[in-house]
Nucleic acid binder design. Structure first.
Length: 208
DNA sequence: TGCCAGGCCCTCTTTAGGGCCTT
């Protein structure tokens, strides 16, 4: 049985991992997440986790997370069990969400745990709402949109915080285009799945 | 040993191929 939460409260999450594919044996090494309610961060979650094997030098360089740091970290099992409690009942957001969803599904699957929220992808939304951006990498969007950041990238909590600011910016874009006082998660989800060409028509329909 | 992802989205498309994004 899942606890139900206000529909406008969402969790933005980001994984650092040993590679690109859980199907190829890759595991999570860090999870970061922020809980947003009414446009304000009200809670956060950050934890390194030990995948049970050494990470590559590429990942050490890319994330700044070293094998030394992971030696003393709790297991993926322990961390993800706690994280499953944190996200229970909330809708979820990530940049290129298909990636984070694969790892969330894989890690929770090993624990026989589930989650009830829907995922929305901030990258798919940015492709539709900022079609003029040179590309839709998180770092590029942060620079293009002057989203405040402390210069930390490729760490889970920092990326989750930045993605949260991007999400709120995207919500504001839809607010401005529709003149509506609030935009539901469900509307953002529909927008993220609409073809680029259909975005203006859907915006008009939402505003009507 | 060497290899290895996958979903979205565009187009010179749909009987396909390749770039984008994530680590």
């Amino acid at each position: 049985m899942y606890t139900q939460h206000p529909a406008d409260t969402v969790i933005v999450l980001d994984f650092e991992t040993t590679g690109l594919s859980p199907n190829m044996g890759d595991r999570a090494i860090e999870i970061g997440a922020v809980k947003i309610q009414n446009g304000i961060v009200i809670d956060q979650f950050q934890q390194l986790m030990n995948p049970g094997f050494r990470v590559s030098s590429f990942i050490e360089g890319y994330t700044g997370i070293t094998n030394k740091m992971l030696e003393s970290a709790p297991s993926c099992h322990a961390v993800m069990d706690e994280f499953a409690d944190f996200i229970q009942g909330y809708n979820l957001i990530a940049h290129n969400a298909s990636f984070d969803q694969r790892f969330l599904d894989a890690e929770l699957g090993m624990l026989n745990r589930q989650y009830s929220g829907d995922f929305v992808c901030s990258m798919l939304l940015a492709r539709r709402l900022y079609q003029e951006a040179p590309n839709h990498k998180l770092g590029t969007l942060v620079n293009e949109l002057n989203i405040p950041n402390d210069g930390t990238f490729h760490r889970a909590l920092a990326d989750a915080e930045i993605t949260a600011r991007l999400w709120l910016r995207l919500v504001n874009v839809v607010k401005d285009k529709t003149n509506l006082p609030s935009i539901s998660f469900d509307v953002m989800r529909k927008l993220s799945k609409t073809s680029k060409a259909s975005v203006p028509a859907l915006i008009r329909k939402i505003a009507a």
